[in-house]
């Protein structure tokens, strides 16, 4: 008997019509999916167009002459950024492990993985701060040329998204340490996770399109 089968076996059949009597029962929606998850997916779909605009601007202006100083592509530190990108990628793994932990009621691992995810995110942000400082030292600034403008604004807004994600994760971790997250709250971790993974996939696109593709 696998876990899955066991779960299925204990699932009781429900009466759909209870929708009519309990409109605020979170389990009773016309489609069966929860409002919160639907909302976060809507937000993520919308955010695609936000990042798309900045990525397009970067692609449009790539390699254009004008301004002064080096372009971003000339001073990328690919080994360094590869490592921070890798860390962000792995934070997605720790995030799903946190979700799996809370769903099976393993609160100790939940706390560990949540904290690990936030930590990985912070390392990524730290790397970005270091990278930005280095670039500024080498003469690439927001205003030096188009490459700087598009690079810093795009990666900066991505960094802002990651920072919000870190705050979110740390808040969940805080709740978890106080014992205020239980199996019933799994969806909260899932929602934060969806946001976190989205930020990660955006970075997957940025890392390839902005850093790796030859100029």
């Amino acid at each position: 008997m696998t876990e899955v089968e066991a779960e299925v076996a204990v699932t009781p059949p429900h009466d759909i019509q209870h929708t009519a009597h309990a409109p605020h029962d979170p389990h009773a929606t016309a489609t069966g999916v929860t409002n919160t998850k639907l909302a976060i997916w809507m937000f993520l779909a919308s955010d695609c167009l936000f990042f798309g605009a900045f990525i397009s601007a970067y692609l449009l202006y790539r390699g254009r002459p004008g301004g002064e100083g080096p372009t971003a592509a000339e001073i990328y530190n690919i080994p360094f950024t590869s490592v921070t990108s890798f860390i962000l990628l792995m934070s997605s793994l720790t995030m799903v492990l946190a979700l799996a932990a809370i769903m099976r009621g393993d609160y100790r691992r939940l706390r560990i993985w949540l904290l690990a995810t936030a930590l990985f995110g912070s390392v990524f942000i730290g790397g970005q701060v270091f990278e930005f400082t280095e670039f500024y030292r080498e003469g690439l600034t927001l205003s030096s040329n188009l490459s700087g403008s598009t690079f810093f604004v795009l990666t900066g807004f991505h960094g802002a998204h990651v920072t919000i994600g870190i705050i979110w994760l740390l808040s969940l971790w805080g709740l978890a340490t106080q014992g205020k997250l239980s199996v019933g709250d799994s969806e909260k971790v899932e929602i934060a996770g969806l946001y976190w993974h989205f930020v990660d996939v955006v970075w997957i696109v940025i890392f390839t399109m902005v850093y790796l593709i030859p100029q």
């Binding site: 204990v10 429900h14 979170p26 389990h27 929606t29 069966g32 929860t34 998850k37 099976r104 799994s186």
Partner: peptide, 15 residues
């Protein structure tokens, strides 16, 4: 699971 039912079974999230 009849359609429309979203009460999570153990190991599933709502919906």
């Amino acid at each position: 699971l009849p359609p429309g039912v979203t009460t999570p079974a153990p190991g599933l999230l709502p919906g």
